[in-house]
Write a protein that binds this DNA or RNA. Structure first.
Lengths: 343, 343
DNA sequence: TTGAAAGCGTTACCAA
DNA sequence: TTGGTAACGCTTTCAA
């Protein structure tokens, strides 16, 4: 029998009354850990009563008492960026198995929004935070988090100089592979389209690009900074690529930027990879179905999410200070958007 | 001055002590609604104290007292399905503006997982639920929700016979447009690849297909039911399409299925739209960048999310019983995957 | 093995 | 306008 639709929710007290014992006893009987210390017969009676009343424990009340909400805040820039859904799934799946729930928040790369969201999450007493909105520089939000003592893990983007544990992909490796691949195909004039350079990911990739180019003789490597990690930003960069001394290949800091370039290229009636070879980054879902199929660096988004969640929960459980960094491998996936340099 | 890193969190009592008033007064001074009934001077003192201590209200405790968690459960099949991120964003954005937070849960179309997740959300005393996992049939989860009295809104998929309010796209309209488009192009033998027919969306689309075909003379229209709304399921269907009496065009129940067919087609060395015209459904992000660009029915996912959140919050605010259904318009987007019938 | 009582951090009611 | 008290639903110590 469930509680009636309009009826008051049933509480421990109700169960206690029906089973003729004290609420404390009900609490113990229903708690797997403490159940041992309760007479088997009592446990049976309590469980029967709880079931009969359709009792649903109030985790919020429990949390208030135990000072743990069993809740984790997940702050990302934009769920609509195809890189993030797998990350969030990874986080969620891990949390769920361990009894935690995710509170999701999108900042849209807006600092004020982020402030407000973090405030809201703190007010909700999340036990920990996973942030995918790291940027370089000593930002107030992160300082606040640090001061508040709420366990925080960064995913994908770093937040130095603040010392939060970080889960990331081996971006440098991926970029190096991309440059090597293009070099092997005969490309000697390559442009890297970087994301905003205050994002650690952008910076790491740009630096890796420069290093990779420098490590090979006879390559010209230029870096252009895009205004955002978006399709539009990619399209806006394109004219510069196609102007005076156009490169034969481009390595973009993410797939969105690559798609932007691709669109602009098509709009001009040029084709990829013949007129311009393009390498993306992230291997977003369906990158293989694009026109042309996108050569890109695969980043294990879901695994990154899982790792971040694990790092956080470990820190929450033990009082381990939280590891420094977890770096997951990346790999270049060669598809149709790259080919031998023309002539 | 923030509380120290390891220090106890600061509470109303701390603020009360520092400002020399009772906790009840602090509560009132900090509550915008009750602030009026507090001396301006007191308000100022309290605010100063709160600020000085870095006081962060405990929304959980407040919720316990007010019997409202300001929290909404969002249950979707799989965040990794590109249809859902925009929906979730729509929900989130609306909730956030209104002071609510979303608890996200993925069921992976698994009934047991769904049961467990809903239980967990109920234990967390969500004020309402938005479910994108509707199916036809009188499922226990939904019965439970109904019995629990927790306000619930369905998005995208219906859950009849259970009478939950529903926000959906005008699928029939979209399918009709697709069939008309193919007919205009000369196609006379069209197959509809339906999703599992216990999903309301699949059923509605299949019925609309049959009706649209019937409304035109001289078209042969067949319906094949796929095992899931996934790329793989689409690929598995493809052999049947390419066998004995192949149609000249296909209308898929969603984009994933369409992509599956596309991949199978390519694997066989056939091409789209020449050998087979394909229409998808949903207009997933980057559908326009696929090879070939996918003709598909645009469904306003984000708007659906927003509408669902609004419906729920309205129901939560007033005691309005919640409207029956909101139907958002869809539209056919013609791109490269459809063309005139060959010969 | 069970009960009593206190307390988690708020808000709401009733008095003053 | 403010203070006191109780209550939200639970867990946990301490006694019995």
């Amino acid at each position: 029998m469930q509680e009636s639709e309009s009826g008051r929710r049933v509480t421990l007290a109700d169960v206690a009354e029906l089973s003729g014992v004290h609420t404390a006893t009900v609490s113990r009987a229903l708690n797997p850990a403490a159940r041992l210390k309760v007479a088997a017969e009592t446990v049976r009676r309590v469980e029967a009563a709880a079931h009969a009343l359709g009792y649903v424990p109030n985790v919020v009340a429990r949390g208030l008492r135990k000072r743990a909400s069993m809740t984790v805040g997940v702050v990302i820039p934009d769920l609509t960026n195809p890189f993030f859904p797998p990350v969030v799934r990874g986080i969620e799946d891990y949390l769920q198995v361990h009894g935690y729930t995710a509170l999701l928040a999108n900042t849209d790369e807006d600092d004020d929004a982020e402030e407000a969201l973090v405030t809201s999450l703190l007010e909700r007493r999340v036990d920990g935070l996973i942030m995918a909105t790291g940027r370089h520089g000593d930002r107030p939000v992160l300082r606040r988090l640090q001061a508040s003592g709420v366990r925080t893990v960064m995913v994908n983007r770093d937040a130095s100089p603040l010392p939060f544990p970080l889960v990331t992909g081996d971006d440098a490796l991926g970029i190096a592979a991309a440059v090597a691949h293009l070099h092997d195909l005969g490309h000697r004039d390559i442009v890297h389209i970087a994301g905003p350079l205050d994002l650690s990911t952008s910076l790491v990739r740009a630096d890796a690009f420069t290093a990779a180019v420098r490590a090979r003789r006879g390559i010209r490597g230029r870096v252009i900074e895009a205004s955002a990690l978006s399709v539009m930003a990619g399209s806006e960069i394109a004219p510069f690529l196609l102007a005076d001394s156009p490169p034969t290949a481009v390595v973009a800091s993410n797939d969105l930027l690559a798609i932007g370039v691709l669109r602009a290229l098509k709009a001009q009636g040029r084709s990829c990879p013949e007129d311009l070879a393009i390498v993306g980054f992230n291997d977003m879902p369906f990158a293989e179905d694009l026109q042309p199929p996108l050569t890109t660096v695969h980043v294990p988004g879901q695994a990154m999410g899982t790792a971040a969640a694990r790092l956080l929960l470990d820190a929450l459980a033990g009082d381990a200070p939280g590891a420094g960094a977890v770096v997951l491998p990346t790999s270049l996936i060669v598809r149709g958007s790259t080919g031998p340099v023309r002539r």
